[in-house]
Design a protein around this nucleic acid. Sequence first.
RNA 1: GGCCUCUUCGUCUAAUGGUUAGGACAGCGGCUUUUCAAGCCGUUAACAGGGGUUCAAUUCCCCUAGAGGCUACCA
Length: 495
Amino acid sequence: MSDKFRVRFAPSPTGFLHIGSLRSALYNELFAQHHGGTFILRIEDTDRARFVQGGIENICNSLKACGVIPREGVWLDEKGAIIERGEYGPYIQSQRIERHKAYAKKLVDTDKAYYCFCSELRLEELRKEQQLAGRPTLYDGKCRALTPAEAEKRIANSEPHVIRLKLPKQGTISAWDVIRDEIKFDWALIDDAVVIKTDGYPTYHLAATCDDHDMEISHVIRGEEWISSLPKHVFIYEAFGWTPPKFAHLPLLLNADHSKLSKRQNDVAVADYLNKGYLPSALLNFVALLGWNPTGDREIYTHEELTQMFDLAKVNKSGAVFNLEKLNWLNERYIKSMTAENYLTIVSPLVQDKTDDHSFADRCLLLVRDRVTLPGDVVALTQNLFKDKLDYSKASLTWKTQPKVQARERLQAVRELLEGVTDADFVQSGARATFETDIKQLIANKGWGNGDTLWPLRVALSGEEKSPNPFELLETLGKRRSLDRIAAAFQALAD
RNA sequence: GGCCUCUUCGUCUAAUGGUUAGGACAGCGGCUUUUCAAGCCGUUAACAGGGGUUCAAUUCCCCUAGAGGCUACCA
């Protein structure tokens, strides 16, 4: 009953889902889906000190919002409660602690690991010394030589202890990475890592490898920061006589200065981006292309397309700077290309307190759509449209050096023209084209210029020197509001 | 310091032992135009450096440099 492709995303519930983690999760999911395999969510919570209440829910909710859904493992039910699905549970690591202990014991029994009674204080001083001497900071192996009998005695004596890996001290080890091929390490430089802590909990090295084995994980796709731990992991697999999974280490996400993506310089939580209004589909699209690209000449992909095209071996080796400008551009593209209905669904709640006229609100929102980067932008963009009275002191109603009296004349003429249009014709779809034709005809008939007529009209309608064009504004505002504004501007020009 | 990894326009990237080294964001210019956006068109800009291998190297190898990761009883 083992699938050929089983992969897992295994975050720690330390607060929120990092944007880099979202990409790791996505690549795992794309890989699984592409091969018809299984994507699993496992929670690694063996560090009790860093556990954050609600951390698991946060991770699940962020993944869910982005449509990266595990088929197996930890998830949320309809009420938001944590559940586990699948045959390989439990999927919350702290619940597997007895297995981890048993595995560790087996390692000790086969002389692949040993009990260590050294105090943290001693280790600290040891490290200091080594650092000072310019040597690598490695455990000196003091407890390696302890006989099993001695160790048992001290344990019976309730001495605090850990279990360490008994790593080879010479020779080299080769590990294979799907993205980078062979990586070689010198055993002499690899520390006898702790696998069971004083508190009895396993460390990542033991817990992850054993769980990956027990869950029949075929490919471990994780961040580049794990490369240096590869020898320890390979050692554990070999110590148990297991076949290691394939490893793929993903390049890091970077700040603009090429340091590891951090809070100091960027938002790093998926929830931050979602709260700001970035569309999940745009965020996913963006993050997918940070470190991998199916063609190189296309930017917009659906989740399904990404799944079809995903190729783990083509993932880049170097880190990728998180470029907010491109995310913004992508978000704009997504906003422009969604249906009007979807757009309004997202954006209407943001201005619902501005007017009871839903049709008017919708027209306003649609009018500014091309200017929206984030949904929240509509509030400022539609601000003047919803006002009952505009303050014309802030924008010039006259075009260039145009005299006020001329602007008044032009407004008066347009006003007369508009009086004849019915309410219904004013706001019907396509009205803007009719206005454009009629008003330009008027201008032509009178022998006026476009600028000296349209500028005053537009500013009268928008209250701003920079705004959508007057024809769109007329259609959006409707007859009453338009004529009121023109009248008000006419008045303002008299002063 | 040690170990490991990485290195194509400012940024995300594509491609190739022989190309005018392609696309996108940003930038710049133009068109459109009553303004600002949007849109369309155009354009600046890259193979880190040095050695090899080869008829030929951005591509393969080595060295150097730079950047990043790890160096915990965190993951």
